Computed example of a mutant assay.
Amino acid sequence: MHDDPARRRPVIALTGGIASGKTAVSDRFAGRGASVVDTDRIARDVVAPGSDGLAKVSAAFGPDVIDDAGALDRRALRRRIFDDPEARARLEGILHPLIATRAREAIDAATGPYVILVVPLLVESGLFNDTDRVLVVDVPESVQLERLTARDGVPPDQARAALAAQAGREQRLAVADEVIDNTGTLEVLDEQVARLDREYRGLRPGV
């Protein structure tokens, strides 16, 4: 994922279902010196007020998806695309290239021994299929539902709908090179990250 192979760092795509604990995992890798590139954050940046991305979204979906402060009205946009696959595809066609470009720029600028590229919708989007490894943060769907309803205050029907909108657990595990089981204690999570940190530091890009 780097134009100059001699300078390239190993890139590990980190993915997982909603409420699986991806941020807890990526934060631990960052604490060990890895460079973290989070496409969720990039997705927000590319539609920031005044951005070219926001202008393209407004042109495609109309002024109703822009709030009075000139920012993206995410709730209004979700309503537009929720039951409309064509609208969702149109939005992805606008945002995915912008996200991919910004992510690759961040990867090129990384200074850590390896890069953790956080891509929540790795399976669904088809983006970043040239990373060196894929790391899946895994929990049973029952745990995802419990966390969404108890921790985030999401009603059960909305929690189930959120899970249904993503790739299934089996689909994610099918593309995994490594898996972190995030159903245990934080100490167990730390141990898993420490082990993978040692492994990733020994990776050669492209292998």
Rank of each mutant, 00 (worst) to 15 (best):
D177A: 12
A13V: 10
R198I: 12
D181W: 01
F61R: 11
D52Q: 14
A6G: 12
V46H: 04
I81K: 04
A161I: 03
P97N: 05
P113V: 10
E170I: 13
I42F: 05
D130P: 03
R80M: 11
I94T: 06
S142R: 10
T111G: 02
D152H: 06
D130F: 04
I66L: 12
I18W: 05
L14P: 00
A19E: 02
D138V: 04
V37N: 07
A69D: 14
V123P: 02
A59M: 08
P155M: 07
D73W: 03
L95N: 03
T149V: 15
R8D: 10
N182I: 01
L148M: 15
E86I: 12
L95H: 04
A150N: 13
T131H: 05
E141C: 13
G31A: 13
D130Y: 03
D4N: 15
E199P: 00
T39D: 11
E146A: 14
L145P: 09
A159G: 12
R102G: 05
D3I: 10
V118Y: 01
R41I: 15
A6Q: 15
A59I: 08
E92Q: 11
V207D: 15
V11K: 09
Y200P: 02
V136Q: 01
V118E: 15
A19D: 01
A106I: 01
L173D: 11
L203F: 01
L122N: 07
R160S: 14
S51Q: 07
S20W: 02
